[in-house]
Design a protein around this nucleic acid. Sequence first.
DNA 1: CGGCGTGGTTGAAACGTCTCAACACTCGGC
DNA 2: GCCGAGTGTTGAGACGTTTCAACCACGCCG
Lengths: 373, 373
Amino acid sequence: MLRRFNHAGDLMRRYRVRTATPREAPLTAGIRDVALWAGVSVGTVSNVLNRPEAVSPATRERVQTAIAALGFVRNESARHLRAGRSRTIGLVVLDIANPFFTDVARGVEDVAAAAGLAVMLCNSDDRADREAAHLDVLTEQRVQGVLITPTAELSPHVEALRSRGTPVVLLDRRATGPGQCAVAVDDALGGRLAADHLLERGHRRIAFIGSSGLPQVHERHDGVAAAVREGAGFEDALTVFSPAHLTVAGGREAAAQIIGLPAGRRPTAAVCANDLTALGVLQEMVRHGVRVPEDFAIVGYDDIDFAAAAAVPLTSVRKPRVELGRRAAELLLDEASDPDHQHSQPVFEPTLVVRESSMVRRPSRAVVSGGIG
Amino acid sequence: MLRRFNHAGDLMRRYRVRTATPREAPLTAGIRDVALWAGVSVGTVSNVLNRPEAVSPATRERVQTAIAALGFVRNESARHLRAGRSRTIGLVVLDIANPFFTDVARGVEDVAAAAGLAVMLCNSDDRADREAAHLDVLTEQRVQGVLITPTAELSPHVEALRSRGTPVVLLDRRATGPGQCAVAVDDALGGRLAADHLLERGHRRIAFIGSSGLPQVHERHDGVAAAVREGAGFEDALTVFSPAHLTVAGGREAAAQIIGLPAGRRPTAAVCANDLTALGVLQEMVRHGVRVPEDFAIVGYDDIDFAAAAAVPLTSVRKPRVELGRRAAELLLDEASDPDHQHSQPVFEPTLVVRESSMVRRPSRAVVSGGIG
DNA sequence: CGGCGTGGTTGAAACGTCTCAACACTCGGC
DNA sequence: GCCGAGTGTTGAGACGTTTCAACCACGCCG
């Protein structure tokens, strides 16, 4: 109870001595200094920080005063060196500039913050080398777990992480096996929703615009194709256009091709693999005097913010982005803390957000001519 | 030189024993295990990791084999508990969904990665409480420094960080005093560039669209006003519209007002405080059959990606975003490592990116009528 | 008055790494 | 055969925290 040390001047002096050798120490008070100032042991200070109810009110208050006076802030490194694991999770995304991922990140952060964890947000830029570098850093930091939209199916770095006991949850990807958690979106359903919507509006010649390299896009195409097959009832109702890239430029390219077709074979609507592509299609149509949606209806995919803000607001398939992030983070936290965690691989259902770009019902004339063509 | 310990089985057995008490240890090999396996001391292993040239090739190779065999990965927490500072910097941005910040982040990350540092990207969402929470975490992590676009002029949390010796660099903000680094953009010049461009094309009645709450927007307005005063030579050549928010909706609102004006007093062009606003103006004009740029020219600000992808590609004032991030990170690193660091407050110059939305030269008739009006 | 439980506090050990003074060995030169 | 100068290697601390067995003082019960 004897206070051997009780004002800041002493602390300063003590530090002057202690830091004689290193050129310029940042004068950071540690738990030890707090203990000295408050006249208690370090154990008690630690208790105040971690189990305040176990400390008598008087002592607690004295320690808290000391903490405030010295501007003490816990040292995470020390904390989690001791604990063996850090209070951080990693999130590795393909493209931080894509609004989709920023929303996912928001969901992740909500859950993490609620659990008192920090998130390290990393951008792989769809490059395997950057992804690997980020995973290395995360491993060194001993993160509690990693959420990742991987660049390739199976990265050895991901496997390495798993093999040392760090949970990894795949984001917006189907699991490659049962021994992992993964959150995904039912893209076949998304494609079907978009196609059904157009069929219902009377469209009978529909374009699908999207290169089929990515599994996700492939799934979307299959959904569209199945719906068209059932709904329109004949094969050539669906035409596929595959621009080089799923960008605005790619959309323009595809739209130019569509405009070039003879009127009798020209689709009256398009499902695009992506909103950027849809925006490109929209621009090119408007430029050539094709009215949207009167002459040509467009449905995008992803429902990015700019879809609603386009010259003609875009109908689009929305993935539950924030929810995707939340769920993934929850699975990760469960896997990290629950010893008998069950892997799960939820698949979210997308929804169709109808806006102006597909609002008009096709006059039945078109249906007939489509039916014959 | 005697190898007391040389195959993985021994390690496993040793761990079985060591981890009897904690329920399920992740079986992570430490520097000590590597030393044991390679038959050297821990000091030597550390040397292999940090000063490989100081170790004989034979030993080095043996240690490296051990590292590979055990899958050893350094523990950052321990590393930087010892070092006193971590190999991480913090980046706190206002809105991670804004493409501007993602580009800035890219610049920051380039520089940080080159210096072997990790970046903790935090999103304050323009909320002071979230900003404070993030800064607390960064403080606990003992980051080497923080780059921040602050929500308010002077946050006590920022000051606390500075007072404990952590460098803080302001991003896209003017410094509030000489004792700090800050990277900013000359927004008055940006406004002037936009206005001069329009004046040069023959416009004599110009609108500025932007609420004047933010200092940045205010600066832009002043630049526009000065240019118009000098170039057009009379006062009412500039009309200011202040929508509630700098969003697409805000732009529409302002455009509706403009369209409502009698033709004789209606501006023929607008400088918008922001690309989102400009996109809104564009949409509303197109919707009312006002041709852009023939009847009305538009210049945006920020040059976000969607500016180029708009229905009519948007002329915009571009800030050197990636460069902004790079420079800020460089200043931070210098402040963190150079003991006699000089604070600096560079101001970047924006450039005008001319696209279709302002491409047409105003017929001289308009100039005359404008001159009289 | 002795024994016992209880609420509060203590101090040392441990986490995994880096640093640094000290030591060992080798090789030339004398 | 001894010395000195390298060149490699070692092992003990230290970093700041948490944990935990041990301890202390106190009041209560019998």
